[in-house]
Design a protein around this nucleic acid. Structure first.
Lengths: 146, 146
DNA sequence: TTCTATGCAAAATCTTTGCAATTAG
DNA sequence: CTAATTGCAAAGATTTTGCATAGAA
């Protein structure tokens, strides 16, 4: 799904849920739509200010992300770093997970069919209705490991 | 590994690293040793107070957990809830991951050989020296899903 | 109009740090 | 003695909330 299509479908979903349009949320959606990987609230705020697309207050960024998450439009990524990250769901070419270098803090996306299969099988046996899965692997990246 | 054996080996490791013994840390180690699953710093503080084993200040709990994590004796578990959780490493019968019910907040451990295999295979192909993996699956538990 | 969206500032929550007193080796 | 441990209180960092204004339907 392209960034534009994702933004459009997200706005539809928001309208269905009784939301009105707003410039701040639109700006956040457009930013998330074109991201390859997860951003923190602060990164979103900074990116919007720098891109001059529109300044959005931090409180709004948090409120918007919270609502988007409730509607399943974005997903939290817990990297174990100080801040939570968010990225759009269902939008990228394929579902991906994250690698985190605990030394330099870089976060990289990765995909693995075998892992997806294992999780799919697992989901059927759990005492839980699985809503999403997000796997974070920690370690040292090539630069840091030397 | 039994709780006692784990506490003993942890203290050895701490001694090697140049640490002296301390009552607060000892109490935290003994508590973590017997836990089935991950606790938050606050839960640790409360458990120690209630068990009357020893009161430990919150700052010390955090400092102790931080040091134990640095030495690889405990592992952080990011559940996506407000607080980070910690549990001992290498101590339980088998490596486990976590299920989180996003409705009631309950955290349950689970194990899955197929998942471990998938991760083992994956680790060899990553641009990362894997230090640990911790998988958290979100959803609704039986009680909440109805 | 009426309800949502937003910004600002204050508050809340979790975690870390500074400092002094204590204690282990 | 010397360095690590600990508690307390203050500070930090991230996130949430209250309130008033602006804006969409």
């Amino acid at each position: 799904m392209s960034a534009e299509a994702w933004v459009r479908s997200a706005e539809e979903r928001l309208a269905e849920a009784g939301h009105k349009r707003g410039g701040a949320r639109r700006a956040v959606l457009e930013l998330l739509g074109i991201q390859e990987c997860a951003l923190t609230a602060l990164e979103i705020e900074d990116a919007l200010r720098d891109a001059a697309s529109r300044r959005v207050s931090r409180a709004s960024v948090y409120r918007i992300l919270d609502e988007l998450e409730r509607l399943g439009l974005v997903q939290r990524v817990e990297t174990g770093q100080a801040m939570v990250r968010y990225e759009r769901t269902g939008g990228h070419e394929q579902h991906h997970h994250h690698l985190v270098c605990d030394e330099c803090g870089v976060v990289m996306p990765f995909s693995d069919p075998a892992l997806e299969l294992a999780i799919a099988g697992l989901s059927e046996r759990l005492a839980l209705t699985v809503s999403e899965h997000e796997i974070v692997i920690h370690g040292s990246c090539r630069d840091c490991a030397g």
